[in-house]
Design a protein around this nucleic acid. Structure first.
Lengths: 170, 170
DNA sequence: TTGCTAATTAGCAGGTCTTGCGAAGAAAGA
DNA sequence: TCTTTCTTCGCAAGACCTGCTAATTAGCAA
């Protein structure tokens, strides 16, 4: 994602207006490595600009995504996350705390895919699910993976959305 | 995913009851390659068993997932999809029609990941986004990818959920 | 076959995440 | 300063999914 000043110029050049809300969000997202959700960015933004609306945060984030300045990532935790890192990279997702980290994968471009017959690949997304350093040995993994086949129905061990990811901003 | 008869035995052995609803769903999911959502499976199931509830479909699908008989996949299209294929495989997702196909990737286990420092990987998910054979040349790709930086805000070209995936069952 | 009990179903209410809409407000060029 | 057009805000609503509970039923035992 470009720097706030460049984004300002780009927006104006495109006939879009640069509001204080947008400027704040430009700054909060620039080089932000926390992969925030709209909500978590909203809560940080609210701290800096009390009246800002969640609607505006969503709007601006999707605008930036449409412009290719932000990457929208879906790690399956419910809410979309936004990543200003436009490099060719992928993500590590901690199954315990929900933390997301960028990761660079060598050779992901030439993954050997069988039976592609006719399908043309545009982008490849890789998600590594596991445990981050701080969660290793501390927590237990929420059951995304297979479980022993006993009493499931009523006493369902919930899977998705079990761990509410801790959100932090730089 | 095991065959209906085996699932029936498994369920009973675990003290779970095998209802007509469950049997129907076992049959509909067995060797189903369409990666249905709960909704789409529900609509097919409704055809066979008019009174069945969407709640029951969700329940049974999550139960089967918890037992490791079904894999829950999230291609970012909004609704979760269910895959009875338990082989080590990944997915091709058509950005035009939303179709999902299984794909076998060689060497995905030894992807060269840099800067893993401390993160332990449990499972790796790979999504190939592109165009399926029937959509190549026919449709245009919905803007998941970068767009030229012009008039975005109000005239937003919606991205997610633009294409209601066609659902079909075997 | 009948009876019993725990498991299941159906259906609705409610939760989360996100977008649509419209009135009021503000950026930016004239 | 004026005017036009874009934005913001806030609420309503939509999509997807889960919790709750009364009524029903599978499946075991007699």
């Amino acid at each position: 994602m470009k720097a706030p000043a460049e984004l300002t110029a780009m927006f104006r050049a495109s006939g879009l207006k640069v509001t204080p809300q947008r400027q704040l969000l430009f700054r909060l997202m620039h080089e932000n490595k926390s992969h925030p959700t709209a909500e978590s960015l909203f809560s940080v933004a609210s701290h800096h600009m009390p009246g800002i609306s969640l609607r505006t945060v969503y709007q601006t984030l999707t605008d930036l995504s449409s412009m290719g300045e932000l990457r929208l990532i879906d790690v399956g935790s419910g809410a979309a996350r936004f990543d200003p890192n436009l490099d060719d990279h992928h993500h590590l997702v901690c199954q315990s705390c929900g933390d997301v980290r960028d990761v660079y994968v060598s050779g992901s471009g030439q993954l050997d895919v069988n039976e592609l017959d006719g399908f043309s690949v545009d982008t490849t997304t890789i998600l590594f699910h596991g445990l981050c350093t701080s969660c290793r040995g501390t927590h237990k993994v929420s059951s995304t993976v297979a479980e022993p086949l006993v009493g499931i129905s009523k006493s369902n061990t919930s899977s998705k959305n079990t761990t509410n990811p801790k959100e932090r901003m730089s």
